[in-house]
């Protein structure tokens, strides 16, 4: 009985002592914080993705409350709605941005862009990019080891094992930009998000000359300039043998899509324009032709495998597939 009493007494004394110490410590080290920071943090999406440039949502909330001018701050995940709500709460002017979506600008599928060697190192794009050109002959395109997939906090980007390329799920993508930063080849771009996820973009970032591109990949931009000529809105520019469609100027008219000899211009969420009646070829897009080893002899024919019919097209100005010495692999 006595033991029990002592035990209980000791514990009580210890508890009171600890409470007193804790009270004074809490008083001494209390951090005064603006309660609005907590409120703003609750309004933010809470993904802690770092897309705003801060380490997490708390950092963003802190900055939003403390800075007078918050026009430079933007949460790509919450978007304009979230920013408007925060600005209204804080009585400041919010930045407004159109919605964006990550876009993978490489069409070099396993079929279109044959592998010339095998990478046996750590499965990382960053490691491969620091070592050499990549598993294909293209020095600019997607390496296919999925650094972007690993970087995505929203499960919005996945490798397609068929094509060997990453694919973005536009409904999940928050345009936080993590994949853009993770890609050592700078293949991914944040582009304007159209309603119903429509898009037209050049799915290639190769700055090589046309002949080099053709040798490495059948879906690359060869910089021929046809799309630039056909564009009525001046949205397409050619620089360094590469076409670029400015999403701010593009009106989704789709003329360039039919003009591209290699099918490098991708069309998403829309049907292509009806084909010009010149070519008597099959109207529907033929199932992708198997990459035959004989591709070299008739480059035009293989390009026609793309949904766009180019039977009557003049040869691309720079196309000279057999000019350079053949790759040692063949």
């Amino acid at each position: 009985m006595e033991v029990l009493l002592y035990t209980i007494l000791t514990l009580c004394v210890l508890g009171v002592l600890a409470a007193v110490i804790l009270y004074f410590v809490a008083q001494k080290f209390r951090v005064e914080e603006d309660p609005r920071i907590d409120e703003v943090e609750k309004m933010l999406p809470g993904a802690n993705c770092g897309g705003c440039g801060f380490a997490g949502c708390r950092g963003m909330a802190d900055a939003l409350v403390k800075r007078d001018d918050i026009s430079e701050l933007f949460c790509p995940v919450g978007g304009s709605d979230c920013m408007k709500a925060v600005a209204a709460y804080l009585g400041k002017a919010a930045a407004e941005k159109q919605p964006e979506v990550a876009t993978v600008r490489c069409g070099g599928t396993c079929e279109k862009r044959p592998r010339t060697n095998e990478f046996n190192g750590a499965k990382s794009c960053a490691v491969a990019a620091s070592l050499y050109v990549g598993e294909t002959g293209c020095a600019f395109g997607c390496l296919g080891f999925g650094d972007c997939v690993a970087a995505c906090a929203f499960d919005a980007i996945h490798m397609n094992p068929q094509t060997g390329l990453p694919e973005v799920d536009p409904d999940k993508c928050t345009a936080c930009g993590a994949c853009v930063k993770a890609c050592p080849k700078m293949v991914i771009e944040l582009r304007k998000k159209w309603p119903k996820n429509r898009a037209v973009y050049v799915s290639c970032v190769s700055k090589d000359k046309g002949a080099v591109v053709m040798k490495a990949c059948k879906a690359g931009c060869i910089g021929c300039g046809k799309c630039e000529k056909v564009c009525a809105f001046g949205a397409i520019t050619i620089a360094n043998n590469l076409a670029y469609i400015d999403p701010q100027k593009c009106k989704l008219c789709r003329k360039c899509v039919n003009e591209c000899p290699t099918g490098a211009i991708k069309l998403v969420g829309m049907d292509p324009l009806p084909k010009e009646p010149k070519a008597p070829a099959a109207p529907k897009a033929a199932p992708a032709e198997k990459a035959a080893p004989a591709a070299k002899e008739t480059p035009k024919a293989t390009q026609a495998a793309a949904p766009v019919e180019k039977a009557a097209a003049a040869p691309a100005p720079k196309a000279a597939p057999a000019a350079k010495e053949p790759n040692h692999e063949s």
């Binding site: 190192g121 750590a122 990382s124 960053a126 490691v127 620091s130």
Partner: peptide, 12 residues
């Protein structure tokens, strides 16, 4: 393990 593959990247 590909130790140096990563270390090289970290060093760069």
């Amino acid at each position: 393990l590909p130790l140096l593959d990563w270390i090289r990247l970290g060093k760069q």
